[in-house]
């Protein structure tokens, strides 16, 4: 029990340090950006027609001229008290903006995460078991092609095929245009999420597949599989008794660690499909110098990714008897 408490405390401290570092990095990157928030958000023409007092007020609103360190410390002290500040662009509390965007994104991310994990695992395990056969070559070939395909390009191709040519799916957004919020059905939401989720899944699959395949090949070449074959086991029996058991552990770790990739991928994909999620909000906040929103999103994303990795770590302890039973830790 004491051991577990120590572990959790350690992890919590680590997470705090990570979040502090990430927010500092994000903040100073934004403050180094040459984008003038006034010009970016109000426009050259509008700025020209404003009086000096108005511009001074706007400058104060966007924090122009204030020392960066001072602004960061002000933000950080508020954040520690639970106040994530106001989004300068949306003029609403950052926490509220993130909650809305996150609710949109989570389905996209979750579907892509589950599909890429499940399909990637199956393909990788199959390819690894059948190493060298045409099945393996086909799966490996597919994965390598997809792994070297940029997500945004794939998104554009899918968009062209399904939305423009076949007109089977909507071009973008998360709900139909011009419809009242009350009239939006669950089916509408699903239809709008299909293409972006598909893009994220397809690009996520190859990574999981290739890693699972490698691991599976190692297992198939291990002494214990050799011995299992010497004992008359083959094919399905080897997979059921030895392959699955040994490959699931690294696969789970990979799956939880891949949250960061899905998250990263969602930024581009949401941009292309104009999907109003967390990724798109991050881009908008970055370009528009909406520092509180950007920092809020950065910190939340970092926390989620950290959480994923933490779960992966803890799963090792639960699934692997060598660690769970506390004997010979690896």
């Amino acid at each position: 029990m004491k051991q577990h408490l120590l572990f959790l405390t350690k992890q919590a401290v680590r997470m705090m340090l990570l979040l502090i570092c990430v927010s500092i990095a994000a903040f100073f990157l934004v403050s180094l950006s040459p984008v003038d928030p006034l010009q970016a958000n109000i426009g050259q023409a509008a700025l020209g027609s404003m009086s000096q007092e108005q511009i001074a007020k706007l400058n104060e609103y966007w924090g122009v001229g204030q020392p960066a360190a001072e602004r960061f410390l002000a933000w950080a002290s508020d954040f520690f008290r639970g106040d994530m500040g106001l989004s300068l662009l949306y003029r609403r509390p950052v926490s509220e903006v993130i909650a809305v965007k996150f609710a949109n994104s989570i389905w996209l991310l979750a579907i892509a995460w589950v599909i890429s994990g499940a399909v990637g695992f199956c393909l990788g395990a199959l390819a690894g078991m059948k190493q060298g056969t045409w099945v393996d070559k086909a799966i490996k070939g597919y994965s390598l092609v997809i792994a070297s395909t940029p997500a945004f390009w794939l998104a554009l191709v899918l968009l062209m095929v399904f939305a423009v040519w076949l007109k089977a799916l909507p071009v973008g957004l998360s709900v139909p245009i011009g419809m009242e919020a009350a009239g939006v059905t669950f089916a509408d939401r699903i239809r709008h999420a299909i293409l972006p989720a598909l893009t994220l899944s397809i690009t996520g699959i190859s990574n999981i597949t290739l890693h699972t395949r490698e691991k599976m090949i190692d297992i198939m070449e291990s002494d214990y599989v050799l011995f299992a074959r010497a004992r008359g086991e083959s094919g399905w029996s080897i997979f059921k008794n030895h392959g699955f058991r040994n490959v699931i552990l690294p696969a789970l770790t990979l799956q939880f660690a891949s949250i960061s990739e899905i998250f990263g991928g969602s930024v581009l994909v949401e941009e292309i499909f104009s999907y109003p999620g967390l990724g798109q909000a991050a881009v908008t906040a970055g370009i528009g110098s909406d520092v509180p929103l950007l920092l809020g999103i950065t910190v939340i994303s970092a926390a989620i990714v950290f959480g994923g990795n933490l779960i992966a770590n803890m799963l090792y302890g639960i699934v692997d008897p060598r660690i769970r039973k506390g004997g010979a830790g690896l």
Binding site: D223, F227, A230, R245, N246, R322
Partner: peptide, 14 residues
């Protein structure tokens, strides 16, 4: 039947 050299020939997770 084969009797192997060591327990390294047994699946560590079974």
């Amino acid at each position: 039947v084969l009797v192997p050299q060591s327990v390294a020939f047994l699946d560590p997770l079974m």
